[in-house]
């Protein structure tokens, strides 16, 4: 499916009953599908989560592409830091840890091994049902990945798979009248390192278990996709343009968003937030 609307009108997504594969209806409205593109580079874990929430608070439809430095682990809103993460090892390896405002599982964000995206916009620009939002955004990303030579598709709740292996995971929340979906695209994957940082129930991980995860998880590198970061980002953007009919303009955070992010950073750095469950 590709976008076919003229410049004057934009597509407006609405929810509907889903029978099998997600369907969508179009109706013409004056709601703009213009999105700000923030090509954000590296930030630390606390800033990254603060910036996502600051944008979520401020109603500007945005696609943000970013990375993490130092490498970090983010845990889902409902997870327990102590139960999920080998904190000593993270400290030893200089890996930050942060709780997200979104649910889901723990994710290792390697500073050079992945690109993170966040899609943030008013709820009325997206389907109302959460599963339909996942479907729309994940299938846009999957479509974009074709441009770097990958045959990807949306699978399960919120995974993107290539050759049956997971290459991207995501999570979303609805707050302040807006939706935030953020997720990762694995460029390279080091399962051994990932396991050293996460608690997986055993002191020592066997080679067999590492192989088992390697059989389920893949990366752009492993699948022989184009590794150039600029080209990967372009591909993701094209996916959103084609599938959702978005039009992008390059932009930065507003002053208000910067101020909000600065305040929110304190929350994400706090023990109270990170160790709340």
């Amino acid at each position: 499916m590709s976008s076919f609307l003229g410049e004057k009108y934009s597509r407006y997504w609405q929810d509907f009953e889903v029978y099998g594969e997600a369907t969508e209806i179009y109706h013409f409205s004056f709601i703009s599908m213009e999105f700000r593109l923030i090509n954000d580079g590296w930030r630390n874990a606390y800033e990254n989560m603060a910036v996502d929430e600051a944008i979520l608070m401020n109603n500007i439809p945005t696609l943000r592409l970013y990375k993490w430095k130092p490498s970090a682990i983010s845990i889902g809103y409902f997870q327990s830091m102590e139960e999920e993460i080998n904190l000593e090892e993270c400290k030893r390896q200089g890996v930050d840890v942060v709780r997200r405002i979104t649910g889901g599982g723990a994710v290792y964000h390697d500073s050079d091994g992945e690109i993170t995206y966040s899609v943030i916009c008013p709820q009325e620009m997206l389907p109302r049902k959460i599963m339909d939002i996942y479907s729309l955004i994940c299938s846009s990303l999957a479509q974009g990945l074709a441009y770097i030579g990958l045959n990807a598709r949306h699978e399960g709740i919120n995974d993107i798979v290539v050759n049956g292996k997971k290459i991207s995971g995501s999570a979303l929340t609805k707050k302040y009248g807006n939706v935030l979906q953020h997720g990762t695209l694995l460029l390279k994957v080091d399962v051994k390192k990932m396991f050293s940082l996460l608690k997986v129930g055993k002191e020592k991980i066997s080679d067999k278990e590492i192989r088992s995860v390697e059989e389920r998880v893949t990366s752009v590198e492993k699948e022989g996709g184009v590794m150039d970061e600029g080209k990967v980002k372009e591909a993701l953007i094209k996916g959103f343009e084609e599938k959702m009919g978005l039009k992008f303009y390059e932009g930065e955070l507003t002053e208000k968003e910067r101020e909000d992010a600065e305040k929110l950073r304190e929350k994400y750095e706090s023990r109270e937030w990170n160790f709340k469950r």
Partner: peptide, 15 residues
């Protein structure tokens, strides 16, 4: 009582 895990609930604070 506390629940934790990798699940999804909206709104999250309802937990």
């Amino acid at each position: 009582i506390k629940f934790s895990g990798d699940f999804f609930m909206y709104p999250e604070e309802k937990i």
